[in-house]
Design a protein around this nucleic acid. Structure first.
Length: 921
RNA sequence: AGGACUAUAGCUCAGUUGGUUAGAGCGCUACCUUGACAUGGUAGAGGUCCCCAGUUCGAAUCUGGGUAGUCCUACCA
C-alpha cells in the first residue's frame, strides 16, 4: 500500500467493477426501497448541486442495499425542452443557419443528434461520484415508453375535462416565441421611471393625467379608469378622452381596482398587455387592442409611425412624441418589478394566445390532503407550509409550448377549427368517423417539460402497464430534491400520480439546501464562481480553471473580473481531493434547513481524513497480515482497550443508524469522523502497540488485540461505506479476509447493526482514567516544552485503592503512551521531590523537575490552573448556596453539582499545596 | 404586503427533550520527522452564544419584541 491515499486509480477501478458485475441492480429481499433520480438535463453537465444531491441519494441507497432491502435507484435524464432547444439553436446560429431555415423535422433530428453526442457527459459524471445507479434501467423522458405514457395521460385528462384549450393572456417570451408558465417568470426589482401622460378630454376642456411605467403600451389603451368614489373624477365617469398619437377616443370608466393614492388616481387600461387590465377590460367589455407582434414589436394594430419598432425604441419614440405634443406632464424615478423569462432573460409580455391548460385546482385537493394526512412527509417539516401555500392558491397550469423539442401535443384540428384528441391521426379519424378528405393538422406545440417529469416515478417503471416493477417499487421511498423545484416538479408529481394511480409518488420528500460558494453567493456562470465537482475530485490547474470559467462569456469585462477573482481565490488551482473526500464534505455540511457554503478548507480536512483511514489500515494490515488475527479457534484474551473500542463501535453504529433514519447525514458523518480519528486512531491503535510489541504478552492476548484491530476496522469500513464508497471497498478487500468475512464486495456486505449487549461501563471508566493520567503527563510535557521523545519518571500520590488496581493493570499502556521511564507510588510519609503536578480525579501525578522543568514556568502553570479551577468553584458554589436551586432542582442534578464542588475543591487544595512547595524551593 | 429560514471561536459549522467547563474542522502559537500517517503527533490560545425583556432554581436552548442577512409567494399602474 502507498504511504498516502491515491484516490484516482482506485475510484475508476472499483466503479467499473461494480457496474460490470451488476451490483447496482435490485437483488430481491424485503422490503423494497426505491429512489427515482431527479432526471438531470440530458445535455447538461454536473454542478455542485447535483453532486450534493447524488451524494445524499447514494448514501441512502447503499445503506438500504447493505441492509438487504430490495433496492432500486432509478436513473434517467430529462429532455429539458427549452434549455436544450436553445443550445442547439445557438449552435445553428454560430454556423450561420437557423431553426426556421432547417425546418421542424430536420431541426428535431439535429437535437437528437446533439443529445447522442453530449448526452453521455452527465452520466459519466454521475459515475465519477460513485453513484450506484442501476444503469441497465436508464430512461429518458422522450424515449418511446415515456412518450407513450405522456400521450396516455394527456388523452385521459382531456377526456376527463382536466386538460382544456383556452384563449387568455399568457406569459409570452418574445425571444423564444413561446408561452411559459408562471413559475418560469422571474420578477425582480429594477430601476425605471414613471411617466405622467395627459390624455385630453373629448369636448375640449382639460385632460386626465395617467401614470405609467410602460409608455409604449398606451397605443393599446382601451380606457382610463378612476375609482368610483374618487371625488376628483366622479363627474368625468362616462365621458371620453382622446388617446394621443392614435386618433382613438377611449372612455373614462369607474372601477374600484384603482388605487386613489397611487400617481394621479387615473389608470390607463391596456387589456391586451397587462394581467390586471385584462380583468378590468373583461368587467367593462372593453376591446382588446393587441399592439405587439409575437416578437414584441409594434404591430399593424398601431399607428403606422410606430410599426416594427421594438419595445424600447417604441418607448423612446412615444415619450418624445408626447413631450413635443405637450402631453408629457413629468417623469419620475421609480423602482418596479420587471418580469423576465428564466431561460431567455428577456422581459416577458402578457400576450393573448390559445394554449392548453391543466385544471390544477381540481388536482390540487387530493395532493394537499396527502401531505396533510401524512401520506407524504417533508423533511424538514417547514417545507410543507410552502407547499400548502402554493397549492391552496394554485393557478391553472399552461402546458403548451411553442417549441419543436418535446412531446408533441396529441391533438388534431380540422379546417373548421374543431379539436380532436387521440393517439394518432388515424385513431382520431376512426373515433370521430371523419372522412378521408377531411384535412387534419396536428397541433404544432409541444408539452412543457415538467409535464413528462411529473410522471417520472411511475412511467419509469412501465406504466401504463401494471408491471411487477410498479407493484414492487412504487410508491418510491423518498424524493431527494432542492426547494427550488417543489412547485415545478414535486407538487406536480404528487397531483399527477395521485390522480392517475391513486397513490402517492413517494412517502418522503427530503429537501436539501442550495450549494453556494465560499462567500455565500449563488454559483452562476455569469458570476464566474462555479465549481465543478469533477475538478474537486481530479484537481485542476489555475490556467485551466480560468479558461473554463471565462469560456463563452458574452461580456469581456466580466471575464476579466472573473479571471482576477479566480486567480486570487485559487492561486495554485485546485488540488485533487478524490470522490470520497468530496462526498464526505457534502455530508458534513448537510444539516437540514440550511444552505451550504462550500468551503475548501473542509474538503481538504476530509481528504486528510481519507489519508488517516488509509494509514490506519496500513498499520492494521502490517500487524495482522500473516499473523493469527483470531479468526480461527485459538484462545483469545481481550484487553481493556479491546473491550472499550468494541463498545464504542457499537455506540457509533447506533448513532449513525439513527442519524440516517432522520436524514441527518451531517451527524452521521461527524460520528464516523470522531470515532475513527479521535478514538480508533488516536487511542485504540496506540493502545494496541504495547500489546503487540510486548515480548511478554501471551499469544491469546496478541490474538485478542489483532482480532479487535481487524474486526473493528472491518465493521467500521462497512459502517462508512455508504458515505465513502471507494476507499472503504479498497481497504475492505484486504481486511475482510483477516476478519474472517467473505463476499466479493463491501457493497453487498451486511450493514453493521448495533448490538443488544449492555455497554461495558467498567471498561469505559477505566479507559477514561487511563486517558486522564496520560493527558496529565502530556500536559506537563507540552507546557514545559519537554521533547516527546524524552522518557520521564513519574510519581503517583493520593488516590484510592481503585487507582492502585488500575495502575497495576495499565502500567504498560501508561509507559508507552505517556513515554514514561518508571511509575512509582509515593509512600505514606515520604517527602515528594520537587515536581510538576497534574491531577486525575483525586490522584496526583508528579513529574520530578530535576533538570527538566523550570521553577517559574511551573509556578505560572499552576497559578493559571488554580485560577481556572477557582473560577469554576465559585460558580458552582453560588449555585449550591442558592436555596431555591437546592430545593427545586432534581436531586440528581444537585448531587452532581455537589460532587463536582467537592472534586474541584480537593483539586484546588492539592494544587495550592504544591504551589507553596515549589515556591519554597 | 405576507411567509419561511438564519445569526454560536478569525472562517465553515454542530449543539437532540432547558442542567456540559458551549464543541468539531480549518486557521493561529509552541514543541516534535517517536517503528500507520507531516495529508501527521502533542499541548495551547481564542466565545457578551445578535440585542432587549420575560418564564424558570437554572436559558445558546422556551416565550414576546427588536436588529441584521438570505430566500419564497403575491403585487399598484
Amino acid at each position: 500500500m502507498d504511504k498516502t491515499f491515491q484516490p484516482a486509480d482506485i475510484e475508476s477501478r472499483w466503479y467499473e467493477e461494480w457496474e460490470a458485475k451488476n451490483y447496482f441492480a435490485p437483488r430481491g429481499g424485503e422490503p423494497a426501497y426505491s429512489i427515482m433520480i431527479p432526471p438531470p438535463n440530458v445535455t447538461g453537465s454536473l454542478h455542485m448541486g447535483h453532486g450534493f444531491q447524488e451524494a445524499i441519494m447514494d448514501t441512502l441507497i447503499r445503506y438500504h442495499r447493505m441492509r438487504g432491502h430490495n433496492t432500486l435507484w432509478q436513473v434517467g435524464t430529462d429532455h429539458a425542452g427549452i434549455a436544450t432547444q436553445m443550445v442547439v439553436e445557438r449552435q445553428l446560429e454560430a454556423a450561420g443557419s437557423s431553426r426556421v431555415e432547417l425546418g421542424r423535422e430536420a431541426f428535431v433530428d439535429k437535437v437528437w443528434q446533439w443529445k447522442e453526442e453530449s448526452g453521455g457527459t452527465i452520466t459519466r459524471q454521475l459515475r465519477r461520484l460513485g453513484s450506484s445507479l442501476d444503469w441497465s434501467r436508464e430512461r429518458f423522458t422522450m424515449d418511446p415508453g415515456m412518450s407513450a405514457a405522456v400521450q396516455e395521460v394527456f388523452i385521459r385528462l382531456y377526456r376527463e375535462g382536466l386538460i382544456y384549450r383556452g384563449q387568455r393572456l399568457v406569459n409570452w417570451d418574445p425571444a423564444l416565441h413561446t408561452a411559459i408558465s408562471d413559475l418560469e417568470v422571474i420578477s425582480e426589482e429594477e430601476q425605471g421611471h414613471l411617466w405622467h401622460f395627459r390624455y385630453p378630454l373629448v369636448g375640449g376642456e382639460g385632460h386626465l393625467t395617467v401614470a405609467t411605467t410602460r409608455p409604449e403600451t398606451m397605443l393599446g389603451d382601451s380606457a382610463v379608469a378612476v375609482h368610483p368614489d374618487d371625488e376628483r373624477y366622479r363627474h368625468l365617469i362616462g365621458r371620453s378622452v382622446h388617446l394621443p398619437l392614435t386618433g382613438r377616443e377611449i372612455p373614462v370608466i369607474a372601477d374600484d381596482y384603482v388605487d386613489r393614492e397611487f400617481g394621479t388616481g387615473c389608470l390607463k387600461i391596456t387589456p391586451a398587455h397587462d394581467f390586471n387590465d385584462y380583468d378590468v377590460g373583461k368587467r367593462h367589455g372593453l376591446p382588446l387592442v393587441n399592439i405587439f407582434t409575437d416578437s414584441a414589436e409594434i404591430s399593424a394594430a398601431a399607428p403606422e409611425a410606430y410599426r416594427g419598432l421594438d419595445r424600447d425604441s417604441a418607448r423612446k419614440r412615444i415619450v418624445a412624441d408626447m413631450e413635443s405634443a405637450g402631453l408629457l406632464d413629468k417623469v419620475e424615478d421609480h423602482t418596479l418589478k420587471v418580469p423576465r423569462g428564466d431561460r431567455s432573460g428577456v422581459i416577458i409580455e402578457p400576450y393573448l394566445t390559445d394554449q392548453w391548460y391543466v385544471d390544477a385546482r381540481a388536482l390540487a385537493g387530493p395532493a394537499i390532503k396527502a401531505v396533510e394526512n401524512g401520506d407524504i412527509r417533508f423533511v424538514p417539516r417547514q417545507w410543507e407550509n410552502t407547499y400548502f401555500a402554493w397549492m391552496r392558491d394554485i393557478q391553472d397550469w399552461c402546458i403548451s409550448r411553442q417549441l419543436w423539442w418535446g412531446h408533441r401535443i396529441p391533438a388534431w384540428y380540422d379546417d373548421a377549427g374543431n379539436v380532436y384528441v387521440g393517439d394518432s391521426e388515424q385513431a382520431v379519424r376512426e373515433a370521430h368517423e371523419l372522412a378521408a378528405d377531411v384535412a387534419l393538422q396536428q397541433d404544432q406545440d409541444v408539452l412543457d417539460t415538467w409535464f413528462s417529469s411529473a410522471l417520472w416515478t411511475f412511467a419509469t417503471l412501465g406504466w401504463p402497464e401494471e408491471t411487477d416493477d410498479l407493484a414492487t417499487f412504487h410508491p418510491s421511498s423518498v424524493l431527494v430534491t432542492g426547494f427550488d423545484i417543489i412547485f415545478f416538479w414535486v407538487a406536480r408529481m404528487i397531483m399527477m400520480t395521485l390522480h392517475l394511480r391513486d397513490e402517492v409518488p413517494f412517502h418522503t420528500v427530503y429537501v436539501h439546501g442550495l450549494v453556494r460558494d465560499a462567500e455565500g453567493q449563488k454559483m452562476s456562470k455569469s458570476k464566474g464562481n462555479v465549481l465543478d465537482p469533477i475538478d474537486l475530485i481530479d484537481g485542476i490547474d489555475l490556467e485551466s480553471l480560468v479558461a473554463k470559467r471565462t469560456a463563452g462569456m458574452m461580456q469581456p469585462q466580466l471575464a476579466a473580473r472573473i479571471e482576477k477573482a479566480t486567480r486570487k481565490q485559487f492561486p495554485d488551482g485546485i488540488a485533487a481531493y478524490g470522490t470520497d473526500a468530496l462526498r464526505f464534505t457534502y455530508y458534513s455540511l448537510a444539516s437540514t434547513g440550511r444552505d451550504i457554503k462550500f468551503d475548501l478548507g473542509r474538503i481538504e480536512g476530509y481528504r486528510n481524513f481519507c489519508n488517516k483511514i488509509w494509514n490506519a489500515a496500513r498499520y492494521v494490515l502490517m500487524n495482522a497480515e500473516g499473523e493469527d488475527a483470531g479468526a480461527g479457534s485459538g484462545e483469545v484474551e481481550l484487553s481493556l482497550a479491546d473491550r472499550w473500542i468494541t463498545d464504542l463501535l457499537d455506540a457509533t453504529t447506533r448513532t449513525v443508524t439513527e442519524a440516517l433514519a432522520s436524514y441527518r447525514l451531517d451527524l452521521a458523518s461527524q460520528a464516523l469522523y470522531e470515532f475513527i480519528w479521535n478514538e480508533y486512531c488516536d487511542w485504540y491503535l496506540e493502545l494496541s502497540k504495547p500489546v503487540l510489541w510486548d515480548e511478554a504478552a501471551s499469544a491469546a492476548q496478541k490474538r485478542g488485540t489483532r482480532r479487535t484491530l481487524v474486526g473493528v476496522l472491518e465493521a467500521t469500513l462497512r459502517l462508512l461505506h455508504p458515505f465513502m464508497p471507494f476507499i472503504t471497498e479498497e481497504i475492505w478487500q484486504a481486511v475482510a479476509p483477516l476478519a474472517g468475512k467473505g463476499g466479493a464486495t463491501i457493497m453487498l456486505a451486511p450493514y453493521p447493526e448495533a448490538g443488544s449487549t449492555p455497554a461495558d461501563k467498567e471498561a469505559a471508566a477505566d479507559i477514561e482514567w487511563l486517558k486522564a493520567v496520560i493527558v496529565g503527563v502530556r500536559n506537563i510535557r507540552g507546557e514545559m516544552n519537554i521533547p516527546p521523545g524524552r522518557e520521564l519518571p513519574v510519581l503517583l500520590a493520593g488516590g484510592d485503592e481503585r487507582d492502585r488496581v488500575r495502575l497495576k493493570q495499565n502500567s504498560q499502556y501508561l509507559k508507552k503512551l505517556a513515554k514514561l521511564r518508571g511509575i512509582d507510588w509515593l509512600q505514606a510519609g515520604e517527602e515528594a521531590p520537587a515536581a510538576a503536578t497534574a491531577l486525575a480525579g483525586d490522584l496526583e501525578i508528579l513529574v520530578p523537575m530535576a533538570g527538566l522543568i523550570d521553577k517559574d514556568a511551573e509556578v505560572s502553570r499552576l497559578t493559571r490552573e488554580i485560577g481556572k479551577l477557582e473560577q469554576d468553584l465559585s460558580r458552582i458554589g453560588k449555585k449550591l448556596d442558592n436555596k431555591s436551586f437546592v430545593d427545586k432542582a432534581p436531586t440528581d442534578v444537585v448531587a452532581r453539582e455537589q460532587e463536582k464542588y467537592r472534586a474541584q475543591q480537593q483539586a484546588v487544595t492539592t494544587l495550592k499545596e504544591q504551589l507553596v512547595r515549589i515556591r519554597q524551593m
